[in-house]
Design a protein around this nucleic acid. Structure first.
Lengths: 325, 325
DNA sequence: TTGAAAGCGCTAACAA
DNA sequence: TTGTTAGCGCTTTCAA
């Protein structure tokens, strides 16, 4: 690889001049500029970003932490972040944390050593304390973990309330909830929204709430169990779409007709909900948009050290499909 | 952030000695080592990887190119690669190429400037010519694009043949194929495997092969069309699982019973195939394993400049589920 | 308008 | 066993 010195030599100028041409700043005579550009072309020269980073202390690199990219909620988020960062010539680093604090800390340290410019984190385990010696901007996405960190989330509680009310409005008399993991703030907020609507109903039983893990398989099993114990249930608000697909599957194995006998509504709006039969009614998050906003805010924070904390909370939208009557 | 000089000063040694302790090489007196380690701890010092990279010309960073992480085949691949690279303290960069050559070239240049140590590419568009001035190891994954590049793929043709023969073996008399995009070598190989089995059958019609794009929506539409035109079809080998889910959906909208009237087999073995009703029979690729192998071979190539070209071709496995009788 | 030179933080000869 | 020093490739002051 050619270096700036090779270019300087060929163009008969100093490295400083080449640098000026490269960065388009300072005075450079037009003819000199041309000579330099010719030399650059001739040598197929590309500046070494590592050297630049060392000098500047910035890497033009940002990282996204997700629990697991295999969970279908995250690829769309990742894609959104990557699209924005790529457009701004940032390199996109992906980290799977498995919701494991040790892994998160290890990533955090490693990335700091690489002068990463900023971080977007989907995390249930990290705390304000853990990031106190991180000197680069952090945006929390999908879940909040501190009031001192900018965040992009949705109004989970309100969304859950809308979902549950919708089930009531279409005539459901016994509405259950499959909730996500306790560790995730969004899951707890959705539970609250559900309880807001049903907790004073005379029919409400605490056994109408069962705990899932945001994944398909377990949801299938616990739903079979719950519906066997409680055949009177005629509506389920499920904490996310992936578990709702498990619920759908469970109803088939129990020969329960959806939506005739049981209405199901999920949360997230991931694309798998369009492929099932029946298609899945859901509270749709603007997933791509959330990723875009997180990335935009991060880039803004990177470029404006004296930024305010921004906490955006987006609305979710009821998408009526065929799993509710 | 503390630098090596701060540590040296505090421990009353030279930076060279600190470096020796850091890298565990060369002679260091035990007591000196202790002093240095104490200073490191006291200052919470972490070496600057950018400076290291500049010196070594290596970044401990590898990148994975995929067409689109939203396509559910790729997250598992990405996860596998990230797991391996993370274990070896490499930073994992993800690039969505959209199968767009210009984007690939731009990524390639940008990453070279960052001294990326190696690349794993899932690409249909790149050619030997395009990478001739890439000086770091490249592994092609899922699709081959050159005999001079190490690769990890599956035996698509044989897998397709097995799938098609299986449909015959369970009594299908008119077997169609939804194939993937022409640009992808794996898609064309699967088509060949299908043709190997059916092209000399008296019933075979060229209209039994229709072209999809590896995605759900289009597959739904073209399958409806095909099955309307050709109600005699009683078996479909689908180029990938995502399209097979579209096929399943199409059969429901046409009230065709699967597997009683029509057997369907997909390819890939992504997890969505376990969530459908009926569950999807498929030719399962060892997706995670493929990603792991690609990463392992890449790391090997990075560490052994005089490596041989390795082209691994893995077998796919017939997974019988409920979409075939 | 241009060049000389210092320095970003680290490693590795080489010398002591 | 330890220190001195050059240099990885770049940017930016400062001086000319």
């Amino acid at each position: 690889m050619a270096t700036i010195r090779d270019v300087a030599k060929l163009a008969n100028v100093s490295t400083a001049t080449v640098s000026r041409v490269l960065n388009n700043q300072g005075y450079v005579n037009n003819e000199t500029r041309k000579r330099v550009n010719d030399a650059i072309k001739q040598l197929n020269y590309r500046p070494n970003d590592v050297a630049r980073s060392l000098f500047k202390g910035r890497s033009k690199m940002i990282a996204l932490f997700v629990p697991d990219i295999k969970n279908p909620f995250f690829p769309e988020l990742a894609r959104a972040v990557e699209d924005v960062t790529n457009k701004h010539n940032y390199t996109f680093v992906l980290c799977n944390t498995d919701d494991n604090l040790d892994k998160e800390i290890t990533y955090l340290n490693g990335l700091q050593q690489k002068s990463v410019d900023g971080l977007i984190m989907v995390s249930s385990t990290i705390s304000q304390e853990d990031i106190k010696n991180i000197s680069v901007p952090i945006i929390s996405l999908d879940r909040k973990f501190s009031s001192e960190v900018s965040s992009v989330t949705v109004n989970n509680r309100k969304g859950a309330e809308i979902a549950t009310r919708y089930l009531k409005s279409i005539g459901c008399k016994r509405i259950a909830h499959i909730c996500g993991p306790q560790s995730a703030s969004n899951s707890m907020d959705r539970l609250k929204g559900y309880l807001d609507v049903v907790k004073h109903e005379s029919w409400f039983l605490s056994s109408y709430v069962v705990s899932g893990d945001y994944r398909f398989q377990q949801s299938f099993e616990i739903t079979r169990e719950m519906l066997t114990q409680h055949p009177e249930i005629d509506g389920i608000f499920v904490g996310n779409d992936l578990m709702a697909v498990g619920v759908l599957k469970a109803t088939k194995s129990l020969k329960i007709k959806v939506p005739e006998e049981l209405s199901i509504i999920g949360f997230d709006g991931i694309s798998i909900g369009e492929t099932t039969t029946p298609t899945l009614t859901t509270m749709q998050q603007p997933i791509y948009k959330l990723g875009v906003r997180a990335a935009q805010i991060l880039l803004d924070h990177i470029n404006n050290p004296n930024h305010d904390i921004i906490q955006e909370e987006w609305d979710v939208t009821l998408i009526k499909r065929d799993s509710t009557k």
